[in-house]
Design a protein around this nucleic acid. Structure first.
Lengths: 205, 205
DNA sequence: CATAAATTTTAATCCTGATTAAAATAATGC
DNA sequence: GCATTATTTTAATCAGGATTAAAATTTATG
């Protein structure tokens, strides 16, 4: 109970901190960003950061947890909202892209994993792997239910995730552009999944 | 003339150096890798590196130039070998993936751009942009000649390049696996480009 | 072999940036 | 307004890592 109270009390600043850190890490990489960099974004001094986190590593770590949380949410929503495997894959991509392209989204520094200390790294890797497997499961389901063409789910999953994870590298636009991307991207990444030579005519499913 | 002689004389060690540096940068990022790291891979001392390059920044810079060179080659080969836009896109992806997945390939640290000093950064960005545009041109050509379905070439290009550029993040396997990827990936990334309901079967061109 | 050039190492230097402790300031409950 | 807690700053420490200069070693070449 004190937990919740504390969390809400910290929430705003800590949130800003994580978001600022995430942006910096995305732009300059872990070792490339100094705590002073991050602090400047908040109008603070580097030392102030230590009030919120134990050290720099905790900063990325927390970013990852936050990102994982959002990724998980996207996945769950997709599973809930879609019926066929294809739909679920589509929705997952859409939700995920929305997060990645969103200017206010917290993070997507799926690089930087080597910067984590062993325990955290393993944890994050585990989460990430589970996440990948879940997505691959969606693909498999789609293959089974006929909504997705047979393919190497592992490799296909990597391709799609790569395209998504790369977004922050080239997208620095505004909300409008983000909107555009989250509408266009899922179609692009998904068009190749369709079960092949389907006559275009009336689709009796 | 002395130029050529010198180049060949330096070639081997310098090559090893760049390759080692590239691998490190890929794994740990620019600021994350120390010159000692790189030197260790060569059985050298950190100071020895300065015999080959002026400073650390030159190291990434050279890696980029090398990568750009290879990318350009892939593009040129694809343009030469393919006839339709689709074929050219397919081949480009294939050649590029081969480079990325190749254990001996020098590099793909398309991240790390912020680490470059302004002039070099602009140069590399210019090259990169030109490269993107060339690839998009291939897509456009494919749309024109009917071998590729109409699409937002900019966004599609980004998606494909992202998937490719992300490869080093998840692939750490051996040559066999690399072979497998460079065979499988182009199909995956390319399937979505086909002008709609096209039988997939053996492509008799 | 002897000399010059090429290559690498040793041993500083020097700076950046993380981290810490103590002090200062702001906010809050009473 | 006072005491306590939350938040931030100042100032200092400290280590790692880039860079350099000089020395040592290896290699080529006459």
């Amino acid at each position: 109970m004190a937990q919740t109270a504390e969390d809400t009390r910290f929430a705003t600043q800590r949130d800003r901190l994580l978001k600022a850190a995430a942006r910096c890490f995305n732009e300059k990489g872990y070792s490339g960003t100094s705590l002073k960099d991050v602090a400047n974004h908040l109008g603070l001094t580097d030392a102030a950061i230590y009030y919120y986190v134990r050290n720099k590593e905790q900063l990325v770590y927390q970013c990852y947890l936050r990102a994982a949380e959002l990724g998980r949410e996207a996945l769950d929503r997709a599973l809930a909202d879609g019926t066929t495997g294809f739909e679920q894959a589509y929705l997952y991509i859409r939700y995920h892209v929305e997060i990645m392209a969103s200017v206010r989204g917290p993070v997507a520094i799926m690089s930087e994993i080597p910067s984590l200390q062993p325990e955290h790294r393993n944890e994050v890797l585990a989460i990430s792997r589970r996440h990948s497997r879940d997505f691959e499961a969606i693909l498999s389901r789609g293959i089974d239910d006929g909504s997705i063409a047979p393919c190497d789910v592992r490799m296909t999953g990597n391709a799609i995730m790569g395209a998504i994870n790369w977004i922050p590298k080239w997208f620095h636009g505004d909300a409008d552009m983000a909107e555009q991307i989250s509408r266009g991207f899922p179609d692009i990444l998904t068009r190749g999944l369709r079960p092949v030579p389907q006559p275009l005519g009336p689709d009796h499913s």
